[in-house]
Protein backbone atom coordinates (compact mmCIF):
# COMPACT_ATOMS: atom_id res chain seq x y z
CA UNK A 1 0.00 0.00 0.00
CA UNK A 2 1.54 3.37 -0.97
CA UNK A 3 2.32 6.03 1.63
CA UNK A 4 -0.30 8.70 2.13
CA UNK A 5 0.81 12.05 0.70
CA UNK A 6 3.14 14.01 2.96
CA UNK A 7 1.64 17.44 3.69
CA UNK A 8 3.33 20.16 1.66
CA UNK A 9 5.08 22.92 3.62
CA UNK A 10 3.02 26.06 4.04
CA UNK A 11 3.27 28.62 1.24
CA UNK A 12 6.26 30.92 1.59
CA UNK A 13 5.21 34.39 2.71
CA UNK A 14 7.13 37.45 1.58
CA UNK A 15 9.31 38.86 4.34
CA UNK A 16 8.34 42.54 4.83
CA UNK A 17 11.99 43.33 5.62
CA UNK A 18 13.26 41.90 2.33
CA UNK A 19 12.82 45.09 0.22
CA UNK A 20 14.75 47.25 2.69
CA UNK A 21 17.35 44.49 2.98
CA UNK A 22 17.83 44.32 -0.80
CA UNK A 23 18.27 48.10 -1.02
CA UNK A 24 20.88 48.11 1.76
CA UNK A 25 22.75 45.19 0.17
CA UNK A 26 22.92 47.09 -3.13
CA UNK A 27 24.29 50.17 -1.33
CA UNK A 28 26.79 47.97 0.52
CA UNK A 29 28.07 46.44 -2.72
CA UNK A 30 28.47 49.85 -4.37
CA UNK A 31 30.31 51.18 -1.31
CA UNK A 32 32.55 48.10 -1.24
CA UNK A 33 33.40 48.47 -4.94
CA UNK A 34 34.19 52.16 -4.48
CA UNK A 35 36.42 51.75 -1.42
CA UNK A 36 38.41 48.94 -3.06
CA UNK A 37 38.84 50.73 -6.39
CA UNK A 38 42.44 52.02 -6.56
CA UNK A 39 41.39 54.45 -9.28
CA UNK A 40 39.37 56.43 -6.73
CA UNK A 41 40.98 59.17 -4.70
CA UNK A 42 41.87 58.59 -1.04
CA UNK A 43 38.99 60.87 -0.03
CA UNK A 44 36.52 58.99 -2.23
CA UNK A 45 37.73 55.66 -0.82
CA UNK A 46 37.40 56.98 2.75
CA UNK A 47 33.87 58.25 2.05
CA UNK A 48 32.96 54.90 0.53
CA UNK A 49 34.36 53.12 3.59
CA UNK A 50 32.27 55.29 5.90
CA UNK A 51 29.16 54.47 3.83
CA UNK A 52 30.12 50.77 3.83
CA UNK A 53 30.47 50.77 7.63
CA UNK A 54 27.21 52.66 8.16
CA UNK A 55 25.28 50.43 5.74
CA UNK A 56 26.72 47.36 7.46
CA UNK A 57 25.43 48.66 10.80
CA UNK A 58 21.97 49.21 9.27
CA UNK A 59 22.00 45.65 7.94
CA UNK A 60 23.07 44.43 11.39
CA UNK A 61 20.05 46.23 12.84
CA UNK A 62 17.78 44.61 10.23
CA UNK A 63 19.23 41.16 11.02
CA UNK A 64 18.70 41.86 14.73
CA UNK A 65 15.08 42.83 14.06
CA UNK A 66 14.61 39.56 12.17
CA UNK A 67 16.13 37.64 15.10
CA UNK A 68 13.74 39.39 17.52
CA UNK A 69 10.73 38.51 15.31
CA UNK A 70 11.93 34.91 15.09
CA UNK A 71 12.31 34.77 18.88
CA UNK A 72 8.60 35.61 19.30
CA UNK A 73 7.61 33.01 16.67
CA UNK A 74 9.80 30.37 18.36
CA UNK A 75 8.22 31.06 21.73
CA UNK A 76 4.77 30.56 20.16
CA UNK A 77 5.90 27.29 18.55
CA UNK A 78 7.42 26.03 21.79
CA UNK A 79 4.14 26.75 23.64
CA UNK A 80 2.28 24.62 21.09
CA UNK A 81 4.59 21.70 21.83
CA UNK A 82 3.51 21.50 25.47
CA UNK A 83 0.29 19.39 25.17
CA UNK A 84 1.99 16.78 22.95
CA UNK A 85 5.01 16.64 25.25
CA UNK A 86 2.75 16.08 28.25
CA UNK A 87 1.08 13.15 26.46
CA UNK A 88 4.48 11.72 25.50
CA UNK A 89 5.72 11.97 29.11
CA UNK A 90 2.52 10.26 30.29
CA UNK A 91 3.11 7.44 27.78
CA UNK A 92 6.67 7.04 29.00
CA UNK A 93 5.46 6.84 32.60
CA UNK A 94 2.83 4.28 31.64
CA UNK A 95 5.42 2.10 29.91
CA UNK A 96 7.81 2.48 32.85
CA UNK A 97 4.99 1.52 35.20
CA UNK A 98 4.46 -1.71 33.26
CA UNK A 99 8.10 -2.57 33.90
CA UNK A 100 7.88 -1.52 37.52
CA UNK A 101 4.83 -3.74 38.02
CA UNK A 102 7.01 -6.69 37.11
CA UNK A 103 9.22 -5.92 40.07
CA UNK A 104 6.44 -7.71 41.85
CA UNK A 105 7.16 -10.78 39.73
CA UNK A 106 9.12 -12.37 42.54
CA UNK A 107 6.13 -12.26 44.83
CA UNK A 108 3.87 -13.50 42.00
CA UNK A 109 6.21 -16.41 41.37
CA UNK A 110 6.38 -17.00 45.08
CA UNK A 111 2.60 -17.06 45.02
CA UNK A 112 2.76 -19.73 42.33
CA UNK A 113 5.11 -21.67 44.56
CA UNK A 114 2.60 -21.50 47.43
CA UNK A 115 -0.29 -22.34 45.11
CA UNK A 116 1.53 -25.44 43.94
CA UNK A 117 2.06 -26.53 47.49
CA UNK A 118 -1.64 -25.99 48.27
CA UNK A 119 -2.81 -27.66 45.03
CA UNK A 120 -0.55 -30.58 45.73
CA UNK A 121 -2.23 -31.03 49.10
CA UNK A 122 -5.70 -31.21 47.51
CA UNK A 123 -5.10 -34.46 45.70
CA UNK A 124 -4.82 -35.74 42.08
CA UNK A 125 -5.89 -33.46 39.17
Amino acid sequence: MPDPPVPAPSATTVNPKQAAFNALKATLKNASDAMNNPANTQAAQAAARALWTETGEQLDALDQAQIADDTVALQAGAAQMTPGMEKLKALKEKISALGNDLKEAASILTGIDKAIAELGALGPF
Binding site: L102, K103, A105, A106, L109
Partner: peptide, 9 residues
Amino acid sequence: QATAAGNSL
Protein backbone atom coordinates in the same frame (compact mmCIF):
# COMPACT_ATOMS: atom_id res chain seq x y z
CA GLN B 1 13.72 -6.80 36.32
CA ALA B 2 12.21 -10.17 35.38
CA THR B 3 15.63 -11.81 35.70
CA ALA B 4 16.09 -10.25 39.11
CA ALA B 5 12.66 -11.55 40.07
CA GLY B 6 13.58 -15.06 38.87
CA ASN B 7 16.79 -14.97 40.85
CA SER B 8 14.85 -13.93 43.93
CA LEU B 9 12.61 -16.92 43.46
